[in-house]
Simulated assay, not measured.
Amino acid sequence: MMEFSTWDILRNLLLAARWTVLLSLVSFIGGGLVGLLILFMRIGKLKAGRIFARGYIELFQGTPLLMQLFLAFFGLGLFGINVPAWLAAGLALILWTASFLAEIWRGCVEAVAKGQWEASSSLGMGYVQQMRWVILPQALKVAVPPTVGFSVQVVKGTALTSIIGFVELSKAGTMVTNATFLPFTVYGFVALIYFALCWPLSKSSQILERKLNVAHRNH
């Protein structure tokens, strides 16, 4: 049986962690763009857009991410479309992330005092101008901490993509365990790497929340 040193195990896991980081970035950035579109539909004046956005959010928040991954990977296969694991993983995570970010941001927009809407309206601003110059800049300050905090959930959500064969950190952990028969060592490293990825994000969210709250109180 081939012998694996501790460094061999850690090196393989770190190489796989690159894909976890890449998938997290793609999911978060893509989900942010889609989420922004859903947000504008959700708070817009067009009734059909509000209904669609509400249904989208309820659908993706109300169903397990695991099931969404299965549907993205196997569902399209029923129509003869061969979907690579990385594409299915990215698509499912983008759509899932968008539903949560849209709802987080909607709460931040609604947290802006109604007086701000009334004051900007009295200046003759249209809806788009109100959002661009008055509402969104204020909502952005409120949105930063929960948005950064949610990025932790995105990183941890990538672990589920191993189910459809995408080789990221948790999938690599299983493969290395099968090769080394050292589950405690391997999964101990996996947990430490996830912690190293998630803890700075979680801590940043807490620091930003404190700073923005202090700035708000001083203002």
Rank of each mutant, 00 (worst) to 15 (best):
L13K: 05
G32L: 09
A48M: 07
G115I: 04
Q129G: 12
C108H: 03
F73E: 12
L36E: 04
R54I: 03
L39H: 03
A113H: 15
V34L: 14
F40E: 11
L140P: 00
L101I: 15
A143C: 10
S122M: 13
A89L: 04
F73C: 11
L87G: 13
A113E: 15
V142K: 06
S24Y: 00
A72E: 04
T20S: 09
I57D: 06
G124I: 09
K45Q: 13
L39P: 05
A85W: 04
G30H: 02
N82M: 06
W96A: 14
Q61F: 03
V26C: 10
W133G: 08
A98G: 06
L71N: 06
K47F: 07
L23K: 02
L95E: 10
G55I: 01
V142D: 04
A102F: 06
A111Q: 10
V144Y: 08
S121V: 01
G90Y: 01
G49F: 15
I81L: 15
G126L: 08
G30P: 04
R54A: 15
I135K: 01
N82D: 14
V109M: 11
A48H: 00
P84A: 12
G31S: 05
S99Q: 03
A16S: 12
K45W: 03
L66C: 12
N82H: 12
L46A: 12
A48P: 00
M131H: 06
K45A: 11
L69G: 10
F70T: 10
R132S: 13
L15W: 06
E103C: 10
I135P: 00
G30T: 09
E103S: 10
P145D: 07
Q116R: 02
L13S: 08
L39D: 06
T97M: 11
Y56E: 13
F74Y: 15
R42Q: 07
L65H: 12
G124R: 04
W96L: 14
I135E: 02
A85D: 14
A139F: 03
E118F: 03
W117S: 08
V83K: 06
P64K: 08
G126P: 06
P145L: 07
E103I: 08
I38N: 01
